[in-house]
Design a protein around this nucleic acid. Sequence first.
DNA 1: TGGCTGACAAACT
DNA 2: AAGTTTGCCAGCC
Length: 103
Amino acid sequence: MDRVRAEYVEQVLSCVEAVPPGRVTTYGTIAAHVGGGPRQVGWVMSHHGGPVPWWRVVRADGSPPPCHEGTADGHYAEEGTPRNGHGRVRMREAFWDPAVPEE
DNA sequence: TGGCTGACAAACT
DNA sequence: AAGTTTGCCAGCC
C-alpha cells in the first residue's frame, strides 16, 4: 500500500504545482479532487510539500498555513496574489480550482 | 488494540 | 462576526 500512498502524494503535489502564479487553492478543493479528506492533504503537504509552492495552497477562509506565513506573504507579493488587508488571500479573486483551470 | 494528534472544513451557537 | 464542536483520513505512542 506504500505505492498507493506515494501515488496519492504525487497527485496532491501535482495539483499544487498546477496552480498558476497569483492564484491559490484550498486543501478541501484538492481533497475533493484527488480524494481523501482535507486533513490528509494537509498531512501530505507537511511531509512532502517541501519542493512544491505550498504558499499557493491556503485554508478555506483564505488564511495561509500556520507555518512560514511571513514567507508566504513575500511570495504573494512576488506573484501578485490579491489579498485582503489582513494577510488573507481574496478567495473571490485568487481562488483557483484544478477542475476549472480556464478561469 | 485504542486513543491522540495534525499545514482542514463545514455547521452551529 | 467570532468561537466552538464534529467529521474527515492517516500516522504515531
